[in-house]
């Protein structure tokens, strides 16, 4: 998101010179064009849930006029038979606590205090797998597992889920 807003702010001319694609749109393109095939039984028996990152939701809506809520959910549907929404989601979602560059600040206690509501949201789903499309969220959730007693939770990138389901 920082790169995209950097381009829009400082190098708008490049937006006409090149094509740009989000992780969601590229994966969707590959799936819809039949360039990749996915096996939806790969995680049979696993209950998954999805986390909306702030940057692809509220922040993208404000900066780029579009929030990526439906795209990742469509991709989840192509990979999984059994996944559930957590509460709250989309524009009402709670940040994981690892956004805004907070992990390298050293304020760890504060960062986990921040994420206490999110931990409850995740636990309430009863999910074994938490899918995220953001590096910061991924790191924060892995760190939260120990802090909030969620040792069995598997934290997975959205593109990792797709790669795991590839039929090659």
């Amino acid at each position: 998101m920082s790169t995209r807003s950097g381009f829009e702010k400082h190098f708008p001319e490049a937006l006409n010179e090149f094509a740009f694609v989000t992780v969601f749109d590229l994966m969707i393109q590959y799936i819809k064009e039949g360039r990749i095939k996915l096996d939806r039984t790969r995680f049979a028996g696993v209950k998954a849930t999805y986390h909306d990152p702030c940057n692809y939701g509220r922040k993208s809506q404000r900066l780029f006029g579009h929030a990526y809520y439906e795209e990742p959910r469509w991709i989840m549907d192509q990979c999984l038979d059994n996944w559930v929404e957590m509460y709250p989601t989309r524009e009402n979602q709670l940040c994981c606590g690892g956004g805004g560059g907070t992990p390298p600040t050293g304020y760890h206690e504060e960062r986990f205090h921040y994420s206490r509501w999110k931990a409850e949201s995740i636990k309430a789903t009863g999910a074994d797998m938490l899918v995220v499309p953001c590096h910061s969220c991924h790191g924060q959730f892995n760190a939260m597992k120990k802090k909030f007693d969620m040792p069995g939770l598997q934290v997975k990138y959205l593109w990792e889920l797709v790669a795991d389901c590839l039929v090659v």
Binding site: F7, F11, A19, H135
Partner: peptide, 23 residues
């Protein structure tokens, strides 16, 4: 601006068509 500009330099240097926005 500097960091973004360097990505743009790479795009021009390597004559690519598309940038995948960093995740």
């Amino acid at each position: 601006k500097t960091m973004t500009g360097r990505i743009l330099e790479n795009m021009r240097r390597l004559e690519v068509k598309t940038l995948l926005w960093p995740e």
